[in-house]
Each structure stands twice: as structure tokens, then as C-alpha cells.
């Protein structure tokens, strides 16, 4: 019985070990194929992301701490003074609410301003919290006057922040029901399609611009001839002549610029 148990345990351990080893070794097909640079870049990127997350976490923690401190102090001061209870609590609640709306960028906007008048300690704390973002200074003067407006502003801010967050490159984060490989294939197919569409668009723009260049050349030629003719027939004075000539030169400059860009665009498309 003992022997059986031992072998079972050994077997289980080996099974798990082999599974783990094979996963880690096969998970890096890029190694040894000249893809070290890419790996390095990815590592650096990951490190950057980690540092960013840590920084965000720290900021959030410090904000939470200061908000909690401010809350405790407000409660204490309310108990001591025994005035303005409902109003203050309400205001403070708003500040908290806004913070939760802002998410990681939570500023506790109203904390600083609302607490300002309720004692030096509170105002100091509030400022600390508020200083996390310079936008607070814009909001501060209006806090007492139109609180509703600020609420709306902050709500908009919150939505903007969440929208901005959702816009980021969340490759592979929302895979839905797809597995990693399937998601990768789907994304690759999507990108290939996008690339083809973009290529077609650029080709069309180049063709359109080519026709514009041709017509522009004709127009500039006609304008030059007309200018010289008008000058010979003394229909125009020197000033008007110089003015029109300058305009023609500007148009020629723009024409050359467009031609250069078209050439580079064509070479880029041909290379790809």
C-alpha cells in the first residue's frame, strides 16, 4: 500500500513537472531565430506597463488615504462644531462620488474646495488631494456657485476617461469566446483586410492627385502666358504684374510639393 502511494505521488509530481516544462519551453518559438530584438522590445514594454501600473496604484492608494483622512477629520470637526451637518456631509459625499467616477484618475475635486471653509486642517488636506490634478484649480472657484455644473463636468470627464481607456490597444484582452490562437488569426485577418483597403484608398488618392497635377500644370501655363501677354500689351502695371507672378510661383511650389509626395507615395506602395 505504501509503495503504491509513493509511486502515485512520484507519478503525479513528474506529470505536473513535465507538463510545466513542456509549456514553458514551447511557449517561446521565437528564440534562436533572430527574434531576440523583438523579445527585448516586448520585455521593455512590459516593464514600462508594470511601472505605469505601480505608479497608478501608488497614486490611487495615496488618494484613498488622503480622502479617508479628510473624511475622518471632517467628521471630527462636525462633531466638535456641531453645525452645518447635512450640507457638509452632502458635499463630501459628492466629492467621493466624483472620485469613484473618475476611476484611477480620481481627483476628489470637491474635497479640497468644500473642506476649505471648514477649518485649516481640512483645507490643507483637501488641497493635498486636489493637487493631484491641475484641473481642480479650474473647478474650485465654481464649486460654491454652480455645483450642478461641476457634477456634469466631472461626469463628462469620467466618461471621457473611460472612453480613452477603452480606446487603447487592448489586443487580446477582449477575446470573447475565441481562444488565444483563434483570436490571433482573426486579428491577423482583420489587419490584412484593413491593409488592403488602405492600399486601395491610397492608390485612388494618388490617381486623383495625378489628374489634379496635370490640370494644374495646364492652368499655370495658361496663367503665365496671359500674364506675359497683358504685360506686353501694357494692360497691367508693374505692381499687378509682380503680384500675379508671385501667385504663379506659389502655385508652382505647391505643384512641385504635391508631385514629390505623389512620387514617394508611389514608391511606398510599390515597395509593399
Amino acid at each position: 500500500m505504501k509503495y503504491l502511494n509513493k509511486t502515485c505521488l512520484k507519478g503525479l509530481f513528474l506529470f505536473l513537472l513535465m507538463g510545466l516544462l513542456s509549456t514553458t519551453t514551447f511557449a517561446q518559438p521565437g528564440k534562436g531565430k533572430g527574434k531576440g530584438q523583438l523579445k527585448k522590445a516586448e520585455k521593455i514594454e512590459q516593464k514600462g506597463m508594470q511601472a505605469k501600473k505601480e505608479a497608478k496604484g501608488k497614486i490611487k492608494e495615496s488618494l484613498d488615504d488622503s480622502v479617508n483622512d479628510a473624511e475622518v477629520e471632517v467628521e471630527n470637526s462636525l462633531e466638535h462644531t456641531g453645525k452645518g451637518n447635512g450640507k457638509n456631509k452632502k458635499k463630501f459625499g459628492n466629492g467621493k462620488k466624483e472620485k469613484s467616477q473618475d476611476g484611477l484618475d480620481g481627483k476628489g475635486d470637491d474635497n479640497g474646495s468644500d473642506l476649505k471653509g471648514k477649518g485649516k486642517e481640512n483645507s490643507g488636506k483637501g488641497k493635498k488631494v486636489g493637487d493631484a490634478n491641475s484641473d481642480d484649480e479650474e473647478l474650485r472657484p465654481d464649486v460654491g456657485k454652480d455645483k450642478g455644473k461641476n457634477k456634469e463636468k466631472d461626469k463628462d470627464k469620467g466618461t471621457k476617461v473611460t472612453a480613452a481607456k477603452s480606446k487603447g490597444n487592448a489586443y487580446g484582452k477582449n477575446k470573447g469566446e475565441l481562444s488565444g490562437k483563434e483570436f490571433g488569426q482573426a486579428r491577423a485577418a482583420e489587419v490584412r483586410q484593413n491593409y488592403e483597403v488602405k492600399q486601395k484608398e491610397v492608390k485612388k488618392v494618388i490617381v486623383d492627385s495625378d489628374s489634379t497635377v496635370k490640370s494644374a500644370k495646364g492652368k499655370i501655363k495658361v496663367a503665365k502666358e496671359k500674364l506675359e501677354k497683358d504685360k506686353k500689351e501694357k494692360k497691367i502695371d508693374e505692381k499687378e504684374y509682380a503680384d500675379r507672378k508671385r501667385k504663379i510661383e506659389v502655385a508652382e511650389g505647391k505643384l512641385k510639393e504635391l508631385q514629390g509626395k505623389l512620387e514617394s507615395g508611389k514608391t511606398k506602395i510599390n515597395k509593399q
Binding site: 507519478g11 513528474l14 506529470f15 505536473l16 513537472l17 513535465m18 507538463g19 510545466l20 516544462l21 513542456s22 509549456t23 514551447f26 511557449a27 518559438p29 487580446g172 481562444s179 488565444g180 490562437k181 483570436f183 490571433g184 488569426q185
Partner: peptide, 18 residues
């Protein structure tokens, strides 16, 4: 068991993006 472990490892790796 080693063989099965290897198979398990390979199959779990199959799902990873190329």
C-alpha cells in the same frame, strides 16, 4: 506518465497565438 505529461504540455501550448 512522462509521455502523457509532455502531451498535456503540448496541447496546452496549442492555444497560444502564433
Amino acid at each position: 506518465l512522462i509521455f502523457i505529461g509532455l502531451l498535456f504540455g503540448c496541447s496546452s501550448n496549442e492555444n497560444k497565438p502564433d
